[in-house]
Design a protein around this nucleic acid. Structure first.
Lengths: 201, 201
DNA sequence: AAGATTAACTTTACAGTGTCAAAATTGAGT
DNA sequence: ACTCAATTTTGACACTGTAAAGTTAATCTT
């Protein structure tokens, strides 16, 4: 069952197709991703992918799952660097979020975007995405007021960094060229810093 | 120049094509939008749109511009309802942002998303988008500390509501069915309320 | 070991798509 | 009436996803 290793013709076509898809995505963006090109890159006929994925939506879903794995890695890397306070970890996860977006914008779009194909990207009932969310949850936990719903802080942090990342990637802040230091990223981090504190009367 | 009114064959084909595109978008999402279908709806041959738009990307750009007009209307409506405090206006604009997303998710994706076509959606040098941004700026202005860059508050508010709207629309909060009141929207508004206040020592 | 069975892949075909070049039509100006 | 330019159509091409049927190769059964 599952992904066989050395099967009939191609060693592991499913894996090869996903990788080809990721490559195409990172090289030419979403417009460059097609089933037939993936098949060609894997050295296989154009209809072969149909036996491994439910069409193009299926391949994109598989790519998105892979994307969430890489995404998790970016976030864990950002919070595992030496000793950090809870608040440094919170900032770290945000920086990891943005860094992932900068390095893998195509994947991010496939993971969260609609990509015009009416595909339902995996939600939190998906293993990879759930894992990424648990990382966020762990970092947010110290800032959840006792007895309150953790979803509140999580939604605040997630919305803020997700929105910033997408707007920044889209060039909406008019600073796609300027370094992050000069971007509104610090402004967003300043607001993050206020999560879990109390407002002055 | 510009959009002629009663020209040769079709009264105002450009206008008709944009409207057909919006209709297709709201009916069947991004996947349903195609140049040929727009042409058919406008009762015109499949190659006619090429003379009015720079291909599909051009049509999408035009639709996005139209979207920003509607978007602006949602926000102004939300802040023109009776007498409001500055803070109520700030909450109002956020609610308008979300309401627009709920009512016109297809347009929102076209306006900000990548839609897999490598299209550059209009940025702030575009009239319609600039107008929408100025509304945001006006509402944020009272919360900008004296002598500070207004972009800071704007980026905070925009990132927060933009991220929340997209995540909510994507079902990422696992509450696409539950009403807004039970969603994390109030959590995000609570963070919005803290903008422009000082953190307690 | 030999035949049957199933999985992996290919071939062929079809309906859509965007896009281009050339031809035909139409409206307005003179 | 003629000209002319803007507008639209026609026809073609390459590309896409997808479905059905055929082919090959590995595994299973006896």
């Amino acid at each position: 069952m599952s992904t066989a290793k050395t099967r009939h013709h191609h060693g592991d076509l499913k894996r090869a197709l996903i990788q080809a898809g990721i490559d195409l995505l990172e090289e030419g963006g979403l417009e460059a991703l097609s089933l037939r090109k993936c098949a060609a890159r894997a050295g296989v006929s154009h209809a072969a992918p149909a036996h491994h994925f439910a069409g193009l939506p299926g391949l994109i879903t598989a790519i998105a799952e892979e994307g969430f794995d890489i995404f998790s890695k970016y976030m864990t890397d950002a919070i595992h660097a030496g000793e950090q306070t809870d608040r440094e970890r919170l900032r770290g996860i945000c920086r990891g979020y943005l860094q992932f977006g900068l390095s893998h914008s195509g994947l991010l779009k496939v993971m969260f975007g609609e990509h015009g194909l009416g595909v339902h990207v995996p939600r939190k009932d998906n293993r990879e995405e759930a894992e990424a969310y648990l990382i966020l949850r762990g970092v947010c936990a110290p800032f959840v007021p006792e007895g309150e719903d953790p979803h509140i802080v999580e939604a605040q942090v997630w919305s803020l960094i997700h929105g910033f990342t997408l707007l920044y990637l889209g060039g909406e802040f008019g600073c796609a060229d300027t370094p992050i230091e000069d971007s509104p990223f610090e402004a967003v981090m300043a607001l993050i810093d206020r999560i879990g504190t109390q407002a002055k009367a």
